[in-house]
Computed example of a mutant assay.
Amino acid sequence: MTEPHGPRVVLIGPMGAGKTTVADLLAQAWGCEVRDTDQDVEAQEGRSVQEIFIELGEPYFRDRERAAVRAAVREHTGVLALGGGAVMDPGTREVLVGQRVVFLNVGLADAAKRVGLGQGRPLLVGNIRSRIKTILTERLPIYAAVASHVVDTDGRPADEVADEVRAWVEAEEGA
């Protein structure tokens, strides 16, 4: 594989997949920075993702998110973690073409345990388990289509998941 421009690896997946934790572990192992596009949007907007959803709506947030992903792919060379719904946007998917994208896959039971009561997660209003199931069903095919590699996270500690991602990325870099 030719060396992609941009981040060393992009992590995608649903809420509860462990993107933030795995990104931190990878950055620590590689001695690089982590960039999280949700945090980028929050910094630019001066409010939380949840507040943006409530006050300005999901379309507004997705527009800001797409711009954050585009900037991160252009500027960042470390580990990039995307928000769970980022790849639902066709423009964001287009930005990811040619990047090393790892889909951290998680099943319903593990996702529900990891997100707890969904505090701060604007798409988890109502029955959390039912909402997660709906989101997983809608998004799994798109995550899989965008990904260069898939890592299953169910029942696995984050360090083991990070080790698998690291081994894959390093093998790709050596290819």
Rank of each mutant, 00 (worst) to 15 (best):
T20A: 06
V161G: 07
A111W: 10
Q39P: 12
I142K: 12
D40W: 03
L104S: 08
P122Q: 06
L124E: 00
V151I: 11
T2R: 15
P90W: 01
G83Y: 01
G83K: 00
E75G: 03
L117E: 14
D154V: 09
V79W: 01
G126L: 00
I52M: 03
R47A: 05
R66Q: 12
M15W: 04
G85Y: 03
K19L: 00
P4I: 07
G118Y: 00
G57M: 07
G126K: 05
A27E: 01
R74Y: 14
M15D: 03
V95W: 02
V49G: 07
A144P: 11
V79P: 02
V87S: 04
N127F: 10
E58M: 06
R64E: 02
P141I: 08
A17D: 04
V22Q: 02
R139W: 06
D36T: 00
L82A: 05
I135K: 11
E75V: 05
K133M: 09
V87H: 04
S130I: 08
A86C: 03
P14A: 14
E94H: 12
P157L: 07
L140S: 14
D40G: 11
R74A: 15
T153F: 09
E55I: 08
R121N: 10
T153S: 09
V161D: 03
A23C: 03
L96T: 10
V95Y: 05
V87L: 06
G31I: 04
E65R: 05
V22E: 00
W168Y: 13
I128E: 00
M1A: 14
T2G: 15
P14D: 09
E94D: 13
G116M: 04
L56Y: 11
G13P: 09
T77F: 05
